[in-house]
Design a protein around this nucleic acid. Sequence first.
RNA 1: GCGCCUGUAGCUCAGUGGAUAGAGCACUGGCCUCCGAAGCCAGGGGCCGCUGGUUCGAUUCCAGCCAGGCGCGCCA
Length: 577
Amino acid sequence: MSADPRLLLADLLRTALASVAPDHAGVSITLERPKQASHGDFSTNLALQLAKPLRRSPRDLAALLMAELPASMLVAKVEIAGAGFINFTLATAAKTAVVGTVLAQGARFGRGADTGVKVLLEFVSANPTGPLHVGHGRGAAYGASLAAVMDFAGHAVSREYYVNDAGRQMDILALSTWLRYLALFGIEVPFPPNAYQGAYVVDMAGEMRSAHEARFAKCTAADVLAGVTDVAADKEAHLDGLIANAKRLLGQDYLWIHDFALTEQLGDCREDLEGFGVAFDTWFSEKSLFDTGLVARAVAELEKRGHIYVQDGAKWFRSSSFGDEKDRVVQRENGLFTYFASDIAYHLNKYERGFDRVIDIWGADHHGYIPRVRGAIAALGLPPEKLEVALVQFAVLYRNGQKAAMSTRSGEFVTLRDLRTDVGNDACRFFYVLRKSDQHLDFDLDLATSQSNENPVYYIQYAHARVCSVLAQWGGVARDLLDADAAQLASERELGLCARLAAFPEAVQSAAADYAPHQIAFYLKDLAGEFHSWYNAERMLVEDEAQMMARLALAAAVRQTLANGLALLGVSAPSSM
RNA sequence: GCGCCUGUAGCUCAGUGGAUAGAGCACUGGCCUCCGAAGCCAGGGGCCGCUGGUUCGAUUCCAGCCAGGCGCGCCA
């Protein structure tokens, strides 16, 4: 017999079932916590499920099951209700035992047993071509919270950021920086409209001048523009022409600028994320996939397996044979691999590292990408079901009731850093995960800043601070609360709080299984609400010593659970505010 | 056109094959000589987009329609 009421009840029901309907002994028994207190602590629809196969009325079946149910000290009452539900009311001692459990386990309360499942969680992975904006913030908050939740649920989680350091976007950034730098020396090349406009590019140019003076300014504007397509004719070709000239004119120095810009932006990004409480175990370089030959190997492997054909000089992956709507180019006519090719290699690498589950968190705009990546995995002979893609809808920022633009290239964006400064990390992290990730999120900056005291995060933190305050006034030793007699807890609110605490480990498991950290946020809101309600109804610092200790122990258990939950969301649990 | 997401209270959103569908905001009225009023208590407010199907039971699952958002490059 288990001490966990849920498992205990399942055992009891299974025993009863074996005698009532031995043929159906294998049926899965679900026990849920009823929404209504009058329906007891746990409820099962077992009789309703079996009514049809056994050709008996649900209520009759429920009565039979109830009659065969072994007695238990932990069960106070069993009732048949409604259409045929069997409702269980636990003995008070079984309900209040959780207080001691929480206090004894402390920060570990709610943590699931080690599952041994190795999970790779890749998220953010924004191009290091400029500051993170509020859209990236959501992916960061969601990914970090999900990683924490899955880790807490018992999985071995690796957090990874894929650095797109090999593509054209990085070349555009390097070019942009160089052009700004040249301008500092009076070499005025018209700045392309589709280059990176942001002030941070000018800042980097300034740093280059400080450190290297005129080292990279040994050419004229005419050199830079030599043979370049007119911007009015084709602005993308114009950009590519400038990049080609930059590479030719600068030689090895081009790589220096490229790497400088990359290091600066990636460092900025990393610092920003760390400030946001978002940490990674690995920063995985796209470029390394080319350097180690993995991209070529991945494409060769597809070719060997007969999934590649050549058309118009390019190599195409026959992804349409693997569920994609059409075939995709992996190697262009000019010999360069596409982004898709390096992504195939990246996923091959992820699989080769031996994870049980590979989770990609992508912006919802990438959803069309899923079939081709999954298809490539299948084509490589790997199990595609190991890959799971969690799509995060974009966060749309509203300011003065209007959408705020968020294009990195135009330079007109609201950065994550600005948002964090205005709103604060705690409210930001909480706000981001308050919505289901696949829902559009309207982030109202005016509301979040001017009326931040209305943010639900404060409601939860306030509950935590209140407990801290009461415990401070009590002034005793926290350890003594472990010896409190929980049987002193008898009111409906107190028992309700105990049930809520007992549900925390289940909330963690559910949030992990559904990839839904917002469930933790809602759990915490409920827990804080029930605490505030109790706090206003009953005093803790009462004359009766035993009662006071029991109530303080419950309060301390609430505080611990709030802290554990907030930690999963990356939100602080202040002792005063 | 095709694909994905969404439609629940005035607004922003949870939720569930099951019992009387919830919260916050907003609105109305109460509660600080009393552990923190960033709190609590009470009240109004709903064809859970529409139609059909599966089911003992559908707001939930399936199909079709209506409405909104996003995505559909030899870009990344």
